[in-house]
């Protein structure tokens, strides 16, 4: 009798353990925690780029020069195209959005919408011309024209042999005066990784 009880309990424990071992575990981690799994581009790299760019773009000379030239009028910036020329799929929005947020939070730079979002805004404005009341209808031709455009590029160099690999990423953001084509600021972040399989 004792043997049957012990055997039954053993079977139950073994079953529970086998079920538990098959289940997937997911835990929330801190965004700033560095976890490298594959060696590819990840959230830590994006964060490092964002920190570097936001800290340098707002402290660079272009801002004070603009304020001086334009009698204290804040510059208006539009975010342009970022070219990903690396060997991985990377969306630059993960760090350009941090730069945009820094512009708005510090109130030092004005930001205007571009691309598809701007198209949507104009579409909404067009819709208002026939559907909104006259007092609330927004007019065309009163958008803020950008003074500067923020463009960028991502590059990578891969050196791999057998189970070892060195990957170097270079992220550049450039701020250019739209009227004069003068590049007023270039931000750069280089990240190099050694991966051993």
């Amino acid at each position: 009798m004792n043997f049957i009880k012990t055997f039954g309990a053993g079977c139950l424990i073994a079953g529970a353990l086998s079920i538990a071992s098959c289940s997937r575990t997911v835990t929330r981690i801190d965004n700033n925690q560095q976890i490298d799994i594959s060696g590819g581009w990840n959230n830590t790299d994006s964060r490092l780029v964002a920190e570097e760019m936001t800290s340098t773009i707002l402290s660079a000379d272009w801002l004070s020069n603009h304020l001086q030239e334009k009698a204290g009028k804040k510059p208006t910036v539009i975010v342009g195209m970022v070219q990903n020329k690396t060997h991985e799929h990377i969306d630059a929005e993960t760090f350009t959005k941090d730069v945009e947020r820094a512009f708005i939070n510090t109130q030092k730079v004005r930001l205007v919408q571009g691309g598809k979002k701007r198209e949507e805004l104009r579409g909404e404005k067009a819709d208002q011309q026939t559907n909104a009341s006259v007092s609330t209808m927004k007019k065309f031709g009163l958008e803020n024209g950008a003074d500067y455009i923020l463009q960028g590029s991502l590059n990578s160099i891969v050196d791999a042999h057998k189970k070892q690999k060195v990957v170097a990423y270079q992220v550049n953001l450039e701020l250019t005066n739209i009227e004069t084509n003068e590049v007023v600021w270039i931000g750069e972040k280089k990240i190099t990784k050694y991966v051993k399989n």
Binding site: I78, V79, G80, M81, V82, Q83, N84, K85, T86, H87, E88, H89, I90, D91, A92, E93, T96, Q113, G114, G115, K116, K117, R118, S156, V158, A160, H161, K162, K163, K165
Partner: peptide, 14 residues
């Protein structure tokens, strides 16, 4: 504007 244009390449990894 405001997009990432993907011009990726395939890197040789042994």
């Amino acid at each position: 504007l405001s997009t990432t244009v993907q011009q990726t390449y395939k890197a040789y990894d042994w």
